[in-house]
């Protein structure tokens, strides 16, 4: 089963909508609540990163018997140093975004903690791809 969602960069009013839709679907499919909770944290962070740092993106969610595979693919500035970006506390968020309480530099570490497999790849000035896998 595959579901695809579009995410607009810069539009904080809709941030979390895709995560919320995926959460509903996973619950309907009777995925265990513990797994749903972890995926929700990881997916929300990755979705908000597109909103906060990129121009637009897509989220595709693939569910089969033994895993949930989510890919977030965005068009945006990319991440020049992924190891640095993965460090807790590192953030390039604007002061406007920080005032809202985003920009703690905890999003990527949160993702890492809540999925079984994480792969971040990026090309500067093109975009970023975040792939996460959770085994059922």
């Amino acid at each position: 089963m595959e579901f695809v969602y579009e995410v607009e960069g810069g539009d904080f009013t809709k941030a979390g909508n895709a995560s919320s839709a995926v959460k509903k679907t996973l619950k309907q499919l009777n995925v265990s609540p513990k797994i749903v909770k972890r995926i929700v944290v990881a997916l929300y962070e990755a979705e908000v990163n597109i909103v906060a740092h990129a121009y637009k993106g897509t989220i595709s969610v693939n569910i089969n018997q033994d895993q949930i595979h989510i890919v977030l693919d965005d068009v945006g500035p990319g991440i020049p140093d992924i190891d640095l970006a993965m460090q807790e506390g590192y953030s390039t968020a604007s002061s406007k975004v920080r005032e809202m309480g985003f920009g703690a530099g905890m999003g990527l570490p949160n993702i890492k903690k809540n999925v079984d497999d994480l792969k971040v790849s990026s090309e500067v000035d093109k975009g970023t791809k975040v792939e996460m896998k959770t085994y059922l």
Partner: peptide, 11 residues
């Protein structure tokens, strides 16, 4: 702002 409700609902 509204994002607090997005988080409250997801969690």
């Amino acid at each position: 702002h509204r994002n607090i409700m997005a988080i409250a609902s997801l969690k």
